[in-house]
Amino acid sequence: MPVISPLPFSLLPAPAAPAASRARWNSFPHHRLLRAGMCSNGFDSTNCLRMEEVEPNLSPFLHKLFKEWDDCKARGLFHHNITTCETKVLPGEHNFVATLIEGRDQKKRPTEFGMNQVLQPFHSDKFNFTKVKPEEVIFRFQETENDSAQYFDGAPPTVSASPSSILINVSPIGYCHVLLIPQIQECLPQRVDRESFLLAMYVAREAKNPFFRVGYNSLGAFATINHLHFQAYYLKVQYPVEKAPTEKLTVVGNGVSISQLVRYPVSGFAFEGGASLEDLSQVVSDACIFLQENNRPFNVLISESGKRLFLLLQCYAEKQASGKASQEFLDMRINPAVWELSGHLVLKRRKDYDEASAATLCGFLVEASLSEAEFQELKKCVLEFLASASPEK
């Protein structure tokens, strides 16, 4: 199996920008916030979320990404201005984060496939990322013969000319919301493989910032495009899932620790440790492969710059299809993808945002998640599979 080289620590200089754009790059946007109690660390929620005027100690990768994303924003490439959207942290045990983006679901591209199958073939006639506008490409990268990665500024003549690309998400839910498309010209369907997952891990590591997370949604777990992609964005607050208590289950692979979430409304696993990032990546990607081959929808959050990962399990699309979803939650039009299951929920109606409470959002996440009996059965299967796949010590 080929090894994907880590992303470089230095990037090629971006093309010179107009003076107005360069001035914008010197300060990062602020969310417009409503006071909503205290974060778990005791700071006011507005301070938890607001980016500093100049973020110190950014990695070269993240510094470049912020600059390029800001330039796309200045050129009006997004469907809405996320920096003016209201965001608040709700009081309560979990401190859920709520963002109001009115009508976002009506501006997004419609889902063009069924939600009942996690693995589906790629169809070139449906929307895929080779069809995006060239100006939506922030940069691209690839392996080289000397096992180092290279960045190329700007967009290629055609998107499909690039092995892997980072694109803007034109319907962002957070600052610097981007899409990572591994081997874009291969037109891979939305399914995890070891190499692509490791690439996403390298991106998280290269950011060197705990507030820049990478996420993955399987088909059936609210991925909306069947072309292999990961998402990432920056939000300067601790996600509820990241501070949820865990209970250790076992150690597999080369020292990778697996725990389960406890006292959190979504069922799932936390992975950390291992002798290397590659060890951790392999265990989690193998768990994802097992789930998708057994038609079980899932979401993954890559947290703490790739040091900790959450594998979250859900069945909300199935409940929607079978008529078992609560009408109250259907009316809220929340799609529980990785960010929502992690505790950052995007609301589309002013009423839902103004009346948002920890109890309501917790109830929604419980409905989206597996029952305790379903989780225990699936947990047993996942752990048995990973134990059998673990190399002998």
Rank of each mutant, 00 (worst) to 15 (best):
Q150A: 11
V192C: 15
V346Y: 01
D354L: 13
P157F: 00
K248L: 05
F96T: 07
G114Q: 10
P56K: 02
T83N: 15
K208D: 06
F28V: 15
Q185D: 11
H344A: 05
L341Y: 06
L378Q: 13
K88S: 14
L180K: 06
C288V: 08
E206W: 02
S164D: 07
A155T: 05
S267A: 15
A223P: 01
L309D: 09
K243T: 14
K319E: 06
F43Y: 11
S357P: 12
G103E: 02
L365A: 07
S5I: 03
L311G: 09
Q150I: 15
F222V: 02
S305Q: 00
S276R: 14
I225D: 01
R296A: 04
V54M: 03
Q292G: 03
K126V: 03
I173F: 13
R140F: 01
V366Y: 15
C381M: 15
K131N: 05
E242S: 05
K126D: 12
F269C: 09
R35G: 01
L7F: 09
L249C: 08
N47V: 14
S165N: 08
A389H: 14
G154V: 03
E86C: 13
A223F: 06
L249H: 00
I225E: 08
E68A: 14
F9C: 09
K324W: 03
Q327H: 12
S322R: 13
A98R: 13
L378N: 00
C187M: 10
I173L: 15
